[in-house]
Computed example of a mutant assay.
Amino acid sequence: MAMTLEQLQEKYPGAPADAFGDSPELANQLATLIIAGKKVASCGALHSWQAQETRPEPGGYSIILNGQQQPVCVIRTTGLFLTRFDRVTPEMAMLEGEGDLSLDYWQQEHQRFFQSAGYFHTEMELVFETFQLVEVV
């Protein structure tokens, strides 16, 4: 029997629960990549990260939700660092595990994501997070 969000929050006190992506379909896709071990990193705009009530921190846990807002796995943050959109490397893009793993794909999709959120600039600051899969629920 799968654990409920409430059970996971008891097991991992203070762990934020959220989905990656900007649509239910993308959230499902990205959660699947995490579970498969292909996605071990993510990034977000610094100003959005600062506005979060509960932020990932090295050693901390996060509950990953799918597109239906159901918990599917738990990750543990292994690192956080600041970079800029135009300084993301091919290796960093590959860690995100998306598409064909290329920097071109990463730039295209992340530019689309940030533009749809209303804030894109090639020099925008990003928080880049690396993580490991802890538990599949």
Rank of each mutant, 00 (worst) to 15 (best):
A2M: 07
Q7F: 08
E10I: 11
Y12S: 06
A17M: 03
A17R: 02
A19C: 05
F20Q: 01
F20M: 03
P24R: 01
Q29N: 07
Q29S: 10
T32A: 15
T32N: 05
I34M: 15
A36Y: 12
K38A: 14
V40E: 10
A41W: 06
S42R: 14
C43Q: 04
C43K: 05
L46W: 10
L46Q: 04
H47D: 13
W49S: 11
W49D: 07
Q50G: 04
Q52G: 02
P56F: 04
E57K: 06
P58E: 13
G60H: 03
I63H: 02
N66Q: 04
N66W: 00
Q69D: 10
Q69C: 12
Q70K: 03
V72M: 06
C73A: 12
R76F: 08
T77N: 08
L80E: 01
L80C: 02
T83A: 03
T83Q: 03
D86I: 11
T89Q: 05
M92F: 00
E98S: 15
D100E: 07
Y105M: 02
Q107K: 15
Q107M: 11
Q107V: 02
Q108E: 07
E109Q: 15
E109S: 11
H110V: 13
Q111A: 15
R112K: 07
F113S: 10
A117T: 01
A117Y: 01
A117V: 05
F120E: 04
H121Q: 11
M124W: 12
F128E: 03
E129P: 04
T130L: 06
V137M: 00
V137T: 14
